[in-house]
Amino acid sequence: MIMTVTLTILCLLLILCFVTTSIIPTPVGACASLIGGFLLLSFIYGFLGAHFAAVIQIIVYAGAIMVVFVFVVMLLNVPTQDLPKVKISLADILSILLSIPVLILVSIKILNWQAPMIDSQNVEMKDIARKMFIDYLWPFELISFLLLTALVAAITVAHKNKGSRYMLKEGSDHGR
């Protein structure tokens, strides 16, 4: 009972956070509400028993990937006047509100969706590790290649061209 209430409140706050992400005009505000959404999502994962997913959500997603987003937003630092203006009209709000019952009706009638039992099965991290390293070994090794590719791509994108690089090498031997 309390679990249902807690999860419902968390889900409603989550929807609010993600809707704010789409609506808010400033980029940092959007990033901040996205981070708030991920925190709430991590709580939901935790309540449903997925301890590993809950912690990873914060460490990797909210704590690393969103840091990149925030850094990029701050590096670009578009002044507030130049941001595109968002105007929400009555038609937009009405359409959002009307789509919710339609979505619910469609899922119940057409897709035969039933409210799942909130059954928090505690998934131990050791079981995840066992499954990953024994059953899913090949995808795991492929992930390392994926990370390597991402690394090379990031460096290629962000590297200075040799021509425009400031040649401060000689004389800048910092206190060796």
């Binding site: 840091v67 990149v68 590096l75 991402a150 690394l151 990031a154 962000a158």
Partner: peptide
């Protein structure tokens, strides 16, 4: 930006 991306990986 580069530090942050490498940190993710």
């Amino acid at each position: 930006y580069l530090v942050a991306i490498l940190f993710i990986l």
